[in-house]
């Protein structure tokens, strides 16, 4: 079981080395911890969502258009990231690179619209110190945005490695792990979409 193993030729590259397998399994465990991290931020936000002090209500400033643009950019980037891994498993380095670069572009687009939205909120008189509700909002959504920013740098560096070293058990495991990270960011966004934006708008209008 040590170093030499016989493989089904169909076994994806990222699962061929023991290090690759353990890193991927370890990353799944890490994602469990990330879920707990975001859960605490969601809890804080949802407890404080009505504590708006003298500032605007959350739902008052949310806009459907901006929300949908961000949601579709991130959702599509999760899809293209999945296609990149699909191409990697066909040993198609070009396809992997292409779809991953598209993923990065969509991620950057998401960040652009998120920052625009934050600036808009601040312009409307809702910054991180306006009220408990807005503090909760900026910390939760900002932590997610920081994750996306980190993901963009991380994926970029892994792609540089793939370009230099080609697809090996080591580099493919790294690509696979970054893909898990990227999909996870979309999973978190689904709950921000629901618990922050949809709930905020329903509470305000309904």
């Amino acid at each position: 079981m040590a170093h030499v193993e016989t493989h089904d030729p169909n076994t994806p590259l990222e699962y061929r080395s023991e290090t690759g397998r353990l890193n991927i399994l370890g990353f799944w465990i890490f994602l469990g911890a990330e879920i707990a991290l975001f859960a605490t931020l969601f809890a804080t936000y949802m407890v404080l969502t009505h504590r708006i002090a003298d500032g605007p209500a959350l739902g008052e400033l949310f806009e459907v258009k901006s929300l949908l643009i961000q949601t579709f950019l991130l959702l599509t980037s999760s899809f293209t990231c999945g296609l990149a891994v699909h191409e990697m498993r066909r040993h198609n380095v070009k396809g992997l690179m292409l779809w991953m670069i598209i993923t990065l572009g969509l991620g950057l687009g998401f960040l652009y619209f998120e920052i625009q939205e934050f600036l808009h909120f601040i312009h409307e008189g809702a910054n991180i110190g306006t009220s408990a509700a807005w503090s909760g909002f900026f910390v939760l959504v900002g932590t997610h945005g920081a994750h996306v920013t980190f993901g963009i740098f991380w994926v970029t560096m892994v792609l540089i490695q793939v370009a230099k070293r080609g697809l090996t058990p080591a580099t493919s495991a790294k690509v696979f792990i970054t893909s898990l990270y990227w999909h996870f960011l979309d999973v978190v966004w689904i709950f921000i979409f629901t618990a922050v934006y949809l709930m905020g708008m329903v509470m305000h209008h309904g």
Binding site: W28, I29, L31, G32, A33, I35, A36, F38, A39, T40, F42, A43, M46
Partner: peptide
């Protein structure tokens, strides 16, 4: 692991 994490998240929130 993911189901357990989801369980923890629901309890926390």
């Amino acid at each position: 692991n993911i189901l357990f994490a989801a369980f923890i998240a629901i309890i926390i929130v």
